[in-house]
Structure formats: C-alpha cells, structure tokens
Computed example of a mutant assay.
Amino acid sequence: MNIYDISKKAGVSIATVSRVLNGSGKVSERTRQKVLSVIEETGYTPNVFARSLGLNTMKTIGILSADSSDTFLANAIYYLEQELRRHGYDSLLCCTGYEHDAKEKYLSLLLSKRVDAVILAGSSFIEKNAKQNQYILDAAGDVPIIIVNGYLKGDNIYCSLCDDEQAIYRVTSKLLQSGRTSPVYLYRSLSYSGRHKLAGYKRACADHGLSPDKIKSCCFSADILSVRDLLLNDREFQNHDVFITSDDDMGISVLKYAQASGRSVPDDLCITGYNNSKMGICCEPELTTVDNRLEFSCTNAVSMLMQVLDQKTVPSKTMITGEIIARGTTDTVF
C-alpha cells in the first residue's frame, strides 16, 4: 500500500493525499476525513523519508553526548528529548566518548541522516585548540548547531550555558570572606566548563589576596572512593580548610575523606559541589552546591532552536546565572 493506492481508493489526487499527510490547510474537512478514513482502514504508514522530500524536514534532531552514564549528561539528554518531543520532534542520540575523532565521526553520521539540527550536550565538545572545533563550524553550514553548557562563536551556532566562572568565583569569595584561609579546588577535566570554573576559583583567590603559591588546585579522574583514598594518602590535604569541587561526585569524595580522616564538617573543613544533583541530598551532612539550572538551560536551548527553524532571529549566546544552594557542608551565609 502506497500513496498512489490511497489516492485511488479515496477518489482524490495524489497531491490531495500529500496535503492531508503534511497537515496542509488547503483541503476541505470533508475530503480530509475521507482520506484519513482510508488511511485508518488500510493501516497505511507514510514513508518518513518520502515525506521529508516534500516537507524539507525530517522532524528529527540529532543529539551528541560524550557519556550518557554521566549523571549530568544523562539529565541533559532527558530534558532535551522531552522538550523536543513536546515540539513534535524526534531525537537521534549518539554517545561519542571523549576522543576528538569519534566526536567528528558521529556528527558526520547525524548529518548523513538528514537531521534538521544537532544539539551538542556538554562542554567537552568545545576544544581549547581552535582547529579542533572546525568540524563543528563546518557542520553549522548545513544545519543549526545548538550547544548546551559550552560556547563556540560561529554562524548558525547557538549556545545556552551557565556562567560557571562567576558561580565558582562567588562560592570561593564567600568562603574566603567568612574566614577560611586555605582553599583547594578539585576538578575532573579541563573542558570548556572546567576551564571557566578553574578560572573563577583562581580569580577569587587572587582578589582576596592569596599569593600564587597558596592558590591550590588538583585534577582527579577517579571515582568517589578512589578519590577519597587519594586524599587520605596525601597529608598535604590535611592543611586545607576549604574544598571547592567541580561537581557533586567530587564533593562527596571529599566528604568521604573527611569522615575517614576524622575531620569535622563544616567545623574543620567546608565542602562545596556543583550541579545540584540528587546525590547532594543523599549524604550526611547534605552537600552545599551550585545549581547550574540545567533544566532551564536545556529548555532554553530547544526554544532557541525552534525559533531558528522558524527563521526568527535569536541571540547566539544565552548566559544563565547559577544559584548557590547552602546545606550542611558549609557554615557560611551565601
């Protein structure tokens, strides 16, 4: 059964059947119902690729994510997919890993599927080396590119992100103002977001008079318990009274370290996380964190995309202010 059979059985032209399938208003209600009845009776399913030729759209958005097992990225995928569905769009998800060649390969794959746009979920897609971002700029010549939690300047590229640098700056500044004197920043990577968080921490320390040798930071890529053990085996960390971390998992690692080493939280040391994940309220004491408003960022990203697809003018960058959520791992008024 195809569109020609439907037109013959309904006694209308092929063009009329096509208008009904495409939702065109140029069909009388009586004719529309006649065609829909035949479609229901025969169980006809239109070929999505054939329809796309007439509509010039697949009603499908590609989503690239480095790692869907990551809690932050998993939440981003969920929010994006739900919002796209609400606007009548399907999603194609590719999990690329963190290798540059794989990211480029999967973006090319999505373009070959004739998606209407591509959303890059997560800041790991934006490389410090500008040449490594060229494949994204090239892809934007074919379809709109939306970036969540990162920024890349280019035509047909639109970004929705939290001001991570300012959020970490505010957290660090408040803790130093409260009388803490020996901070350390723990992070997992130097992605676009990671670089800006680290910059916010360093800037706050410098603005509060800490000498360069007192501005400590350390990168750990291990899991929660492994990071705990690494901290326990390095006596230097006993000298720090503030642990500012790049995500809630890292913050909980520090809390595990404090409990294992007999240090009181928040009396002996304060701890902050980032992302406001559910894990932050599943520990004792509950974790002070930064809410980067991921759901709003994803909703805003899809809203931007819908306006772009409607050929409306939208800003290339929307910066969102994070909110400090004070809980039991700090004793500071934020």
Rank of each mutant, 00 (worst) to 15 (best):
L21F: 09
D5W: 11
V290W: 08
G251F: 02
G194H: 02
I14C: 10
K312H: 13
A130S: 11
N276M: 09
T245Y: 02
I14D: 12
M250Q: 02
T288W: 08
A102P: 05
N2P: 06
L110T: 09
E236Q: 07
D90E: 07
G122I: 01
L176N: 05
M1T: 15
G97C: 02
A15W: 10
D229H: 08
G141L: 01
G328A: 06
L80Q: 14
C205T: 08
G88A: 06
N275C: 07
T96R: 00
L225R: 08
T329D: 00
S217F: 12
P46H: 02
G11M: 03
P46W: 01
S18A: 15
A140S: 01
L64R: 11
Y187F: 04
V265I: 03
S253W: 00
T71Y: 13
M304R: 11
I281R: 10
Y89A: 05
N292T: 01
Y151E: 12
S221K: 13
C95F: 01
I168E: 03
N276D: 12
S246F: 02
L186K: 01
D241R: 01
H240V: 00
R188S: 14
D247A: 04
R228F: 04
S173V: 10
E40M: 07
S182W: 14
K34V: 04
V12Q: 06
